[in-house]
Simulated assay, not measured.
Amino acid sequence: MKLSHFLILAAPAAFAADAAKPKPKPEFQYQTEGIQIRIPTADEPRVTQFGPESIKAAAKYLEEGAISWVREKSCVNCHTTGPYLTERPALITLLGKANEEIVSDFIEFVPKEIKQVNETATKSGHKHYPVAFTSVWRSLGLAEWDKHVTHHTSEHTEKSLRDMFERQSASGAFVSHGEVEIPHITTDFELSLQAARAITAAPGWISGLKDEKLIAKVGKLKTWLKQPELKNDFDRVLRLQLAVYLPDLVPASERESALALLSSKQHADGGWSTRDFSALNEWHFEVSDAVSKLITTLPDAARPESDAYMTAIAIVLMRQNKVPVKDERIQRGIAWLKKEQRVSGRWWMHSLYRGNYHYITYIATCQALKALALCDELQ
């Protein structure tokens, strides 16, 4: 008998006691050789002045977080490398060259051969296609890289998009599944919107389509997006982004309605809160007890405070829909973002998923830089 087996048999109570001990809280959000980024916290000092140095710090945070993930983990994800490759290429003229190590990692995850994928179901019976969200985020990142760097749809991007459509549900949507990670693995509309962004970002991809099956799949996606079952106000305001990617799907009256809804939720301090845009159980087809407990026990659960992610997204949505920078709503939002940046360069936000690594801080920082760029604040 192996010694380890003997110890387990001889002292099960001791092992049970060790297993019951709470795991130590992680010290670093990202860590690899030469990089150590501490876990973000609410009490991290704010910058004394937003400007060139704090912008450089934010860019460094995004760079090092993505590099660390690529070197230490084994997946394309929706909270670090996904946001990096979908947003960073558009900021090259302002922040400098984007990291090619990240795009190389994405390319490695493109299937060598595109095969038919079979639909599966969760234990509760929720039907979906495996790793649909990974395929969508990978395709979007590669498409955005091609849009801003190669200026043509690369072979690997083309293959990734084909693989993505193998994971499209019969309804035309891309169905979300797995544990909820508000706001990036939530509703089917949010995930399908990212797929729409991917196919419109890839240079000339839609206009060059000749495969009848793919043309039909794109048509089904458009049909579903045009009349989806919206789960919450987050979906409703994201229709503003759909109006940018596929303008014909969103009439002017609906855009005005979505802008009015977005404006109505701005806080007195100039910011917005993600939690104002959905009832807890309407974020996802299934919200775990752990996520529910985390959100309902936050200090501001009764009246959610402004957060960096939703404030940035609100500004992005307004700017993408031609609301002028001088508009009071945008000016108040910009002022909120500028004063809330932390000395590390990032924008703090409490995770609405596990509450340990707070990766939503990374997503929020990506969106904050995008919002400020759209308002000519990164000059």
Rank of each mutant, 00 (worst) to 15 (best):
K322L: 13
W347N: 06
G355C: 07
H358G: 02
A308I: 07
H358D: 05
R319T: 04
S306F: 10
E328M: 10
I315S: 03
D327P: 06
R303A: 15
W347I: 07
Q320W: 13
I334R: 07
I334A: 05
Q341F: 07
D327H: 12
R329E: 04
R319S: 08
D327L: 11
W336C: 01
I330D: 02
I315M: 07
S351P: 05
K339F: 04
M349E: 15
I334L: 15
A312H: 04
W336A: 03
V316L: 09
K322Q: 14
S344Y: 04
T296S: 15
R303T: 14
K339S: 13
K322V: 02
T361W: 13
R346Y: 13
R319M: 09
I360R: 05
R342H: 13
L337G: 03
V325F: 10
G345E: 03
K338Y: 10
E305T: 14
D307V: 08
S306G: 10
D307A: 01
A312K: 03
L294P: 01
R354V: 07
R329N: 09
I360L: 15
D327K: 08
E328S: 14
Y309F: 15
R346V: 01
R346D: 12
I360F: 13
N321G: 09
D327M: 12
M349P: 00
H358K: 00
I315D: 01
W347A: 05
I295H: 10
A302P: 00
W348F: 15
K339V: 14
T296I: 12
V316N: 05
T361V: 05
R319A: 08
D307W: 04
K326G: 01
P299G: 09
I313R: 11
D307Y: 09
K322W: 04
Q320F: 13
I315L: 15
G333V: 02
W347H: 09
Q331P: 03
G333S: 01
K293A: 14
E328T: 12
L337W: 05
A308M: 09
E340W: 10
W336M: 05
V325T: 14
R342G: 05
G355N: 02
V316P: 00
V323D: 00
Y309L: 14
R332S: 12
N321S: 10
S344Q: 07
V343E: 14
Y353A: 14
K322F: 13
I315A: 10
